[in-house]
Structures are given as C-alpha cells and as structure tokens.
Design a protein around this nucleic acid. Structure first.
Lengths: 158, 158
DNA sequence: TATTGTTATACTCTATAACTATA
DNA sequence: TATAGTTATAGAGTATAACAATA
C-alpha cells in the first residue's frame, strides 16, 4: 500500500455469494454480460494500474493513432458519448501531453486531433499491456472458444 | 414524445462509425464485452421503460424474492456494491412500496428485507418483460449459440 | 440554418469515512 | 473489537442546453 487512492472508477467484482438463491438470474444474458464486463474491467484496471488509463481513454488513444486529424465530434461518436464528453477526454489527453489540437485548414470550426510523440510511446506500451491482460483474462477459454465468443458478441452489438 | 425525461442513466449505443479505422480494437475481448453490454442495457432500458427499473434494481427484486429476510449488507455483496449503496437501493424500493424492512429477532443490528405484495406483483410482471427482452436481444444467436455464450461468460466471471 | 467546440449545470452512481447501536 | 446500518461528502462520468464562431 502506498496510500494513494486511484482516481478512476473502481471496478468492484460481482462474486457469487454462498448460500444465496439466484433463481434464474444466471440464464439472463444481460446479467451474464454485466458480470463478465465487470471482471474484464477489473483485469484492465490492474493491467494499467497507476497510469490513469480507463477503457474509453485507451480507445481514444487507439482511434487517434489510427485516425490522425479526427475531430472531437467524430471521436465522441466513436466512443458513444456526447460532444462535451469527448471534449473533456481530449482535455485530459492534452493536459498530459498525449494529444494535441491543431487548427484545420478546411474547417475553421473543428480541431484536428493528433497523438504527440509522448502519446505514441504511451499507446505503444499500453497496447502490449492491454493485449497481455486480454489474453490472461481469456485464458479460461481455448483459442477457438475465444474466437467464437468474439463473433457472438460482435453479432449482438451490431 | 411526452416531454418527460427518463431518470436513470441513459444507455448510449456504440455504433461503428463509417470511415474510421478501428485497428485491432475488435479483437479485444474487453472492448467487445463493453459494446455488447451497452447494447444489452439499451434493450433492457426499452423493455422496462417508464418503470424506473435499472439492472441492479431488477437484480435486487429477484434476490429479495428468492431470499426473504436477507440483510442489506448481503444484498450489497450480491450486487457488488458498498453497504451505503445497498441502503440507498433499499430506500428506493421501500419508498415505492416494493420492499419492507423488518426487525430481526436474532440480530438487533440488521434488517430483514422482504418484498411486499406490490413488490411481488412488480417482479412478476418484470420477469416476463425481462425474459422477453433477453430473448429478443439474443435473437441473432441460435439456441445452442446462446447457451454456449452463457457458458463462456460464466467461465470468464468466475 | 446547421455544425463544432465550448461552457455551465445537473444528475446518477458509487465509494469512503465517521458515527450509533448492537453483538 | 467487530459488524449492520446510517449519514455526509466527494468524485467520476455523462447528459442537456445555451452560446459563439464558422460553414
């Protein structure tokens, strides 16, 4: 313990409590998805401990890396949040030197968003960590099962 | 439109944005789980529209039905939240006449929580609605696929 | 008129910590 | 001492609405 409390939302696992009757809750896809997602978030949190990186921030870094010059509105659309949220997220990245806003030649209203060198290095390290955590988290499934699961989830999300 | 804004958290879907490069984000189990969970939450929200029922509240109702006399602390444990959160949730249920607190004979500190008749009727209707929504949501999967998915998720959550 | 970014505001959820009463 | 419930407080996340600048 170092006394510092992490800032982001704390993932609290949802363990099965002994002696409790859950009825058919385990048959509900929504409940099962929620439990698995919390477990995944918990693993993500441990994998990125101390960096202040949350899943949306990680996603934003990946999207900025692959789509240099993207606007805040589009970033918000990708993340599924309102413009104002995308703006706060961009503020966070910029304040830490991971991303920069540049004026666009073609549209005076919008910013173009770019990773800085520091941001590139961060996402490089993060990619590795997140890939590792994802593999460890999925270790209870076989390779084929993991692929199957991904396809199922993709079909539900489309 | 009736002008009333729903109270609970609004599920905002995470659609794929055309023209955006997502790199390998789709291969991340955490990302896929999050997207599916948001889609599921969105369907749940529509299924229970107007009732103010959120997934944790639904879970609490099921747990109270199947475990009459459960304490607030244990309910919080089941939900994966702190005691204070379980208390606010119980307040919400009690204020609407869905649940009641009764003193315990064996332990003067703890409440025993029980569904009221009104709560029983609510959970009866909700069960039906939630089961329907869950089936519709999973309609993109076959029966066997749905079962497989549930087993995969269960293994990841254990 | 519509859109981008911004700002202010409000609301939900949830955690922490301190307190009380019981055990 | 430890636990159940309570209360107060704080923080993160995110939505809405209004506004200025630009299209």
């Amino acid at each position: 313990m170092n006394g510092r409390t992490p800032r982001g939302p704390r993932p609290s696992s949802i363990a099965r409590v002994a002696g409790i009757n859950y009825l058919d809750l385990g048959e509900h896809l929504g409940y099962a998805l929620r439990r698995a997602q919390v477990a995944s978030f918990d693993a993500f949190h441990r994998a990125t401990a101390g960096l202040g990186i949350t899943p949306p921030r990680f996603t934003a870094l990946v999207i900025l890396q692959a789509n240099p010059g993207i606007s805040q509105s589009t970033l918000g659309e990708v993340l599924g949040t309102a413009r104002s949220g995308a703006m706060l997220l961009t503020d966070w990245l910029e304040a830490r030197g991971f991303a920069s806003r540049r004026h666009r030649a073609d549209d005076g209203r919008a910013w173009g968003l770019y990773l800085t060198g520091r941001g590139e290095r961060l996402i490089g390290r993060l990619r590795q960590r997140v890939r590792d955590y994802d593999r460890r988290f999925a270790a209870r499934l076989g390779k084929r099962e993991r692929e199957q699961l991904l396809r199922f989830l993709e079909r539900l999300s489309a």
